[in-house]
């Protein structure tokens, strides 16, 4: 069975928010739209976004890291948000594992959002239905879009290609390989939600210099001084003895 998902590489994510606004832009005029904005030009502007990038500081100065952390719906394999929905508006697709909300069935009770430990769902106050990341289901299957571009908007936008997309059940997919090889992990594993989206951790490159590498045969300074040549005309042992 296919399980489409995103794998987010925290090792290269620079926190640029491209995935945030490209998602908004694609989806507000798409199948999952609109995505309303409240107080757009007033105090405390707020709106519906399917994807947010947060920033964390890890460690203490000077050994501190700045970790940018994008988060959208993780398309859990065991999604707690689905069974609780009384109407069946929330559902997980058999064919590709995408978790979706059918706006026509949703009564806007918000219960599913309570049941998501990740805060991945957003209630639209104006359309009065629950919204969330659709994994760009209206892009990835759209045959009017060239095949190479049939990827989520955020994935295509991401300048660092920190967002990988594919089938995590196919062991040979790019995402499965990345999870395997780079130590991909799931968020809040303690709840058994088995999120399809994975995260790849920071990986550090270090350079180790051995002191031998500093004693160099190619030291150019050698060329700058003449090799010491003793004076010819000063006394030597030759002058005082013979063997």
């Amino acid at each position: 069975m296919t399980q489409l998902a995103l794998v987010i590489d925290l090792n290269v994510c620079v926190g640029c928010h491209a995935c945030v606004t490209s998602c908004k832009e694609w989806n507000t005029s798409g199948m999952a739209g609109y995505m309303a904005d409240d107080n757009p030009y007033d105090a405390d502007p707020t709106g519906t976004f399917f994807n947010r990038v947060q920033t964390f500081e890890v460690g203490e100065y000077p050994c501190s890291e700045t970790v940018h952390f994008p988060k959208s719906c993780l398309h859990c394999e065991d999604p707690p948000c689905v069974p609780v929905c009384p109407t069946g508006a929330s559902y997980k697709r058999e064919e590709d594992g995408i978790v979706l909300v059918d706006y026509d069935k949703c009564i806007g009770c918000k219960y599913c959002s309570w049941a998501c430990p990740y805060g991945a769902r957003e209630f639209d106050e104006h359309q009065k239905v629950m919204k969330k990341c659709t994994l760009c289901v209206d892009r990835i299957y759209d045959e009017n879009i060239p095949e190479a571009e049939r990827k989520p908007a955020c994935v295509r936008a991401c300048p660092t290609s920190a967002r990988l997309y594919g089938d995590v059940h196919d062991p040979n997919s790019e995402v499965s390989i990345a999870i395997r090889e780079a130590g991909g992990y799931q968020l809040m594993p303690e709840w058994g939600t088995n999120p399809a989206n994975h995260y790849l951790p920071r990986r550090k490159t270090k350079i180790r210099i051995h002191e031998d590498e500093l004693v160099r045969s190619d030291n150019p300074l050698k060329k700058e001084t003449d090799r010491p040549v003793g004076p010819i005309d000063e006394p030597t042992l030759d002058d005082v003895t013979s063997w």
């Binding site: 640029c16 491209a18 945030v20 490209s22 832009e25 936008a157």
Partner: peptide, 10 residues
């Protein structure tokens, strides 16, 4: 090469 940033997308 196809990527875009937060500003470009807005």
């Amino acid at each position: 090469k196809g990527v875009i940033c937060a500003k470009g997308s807005s």
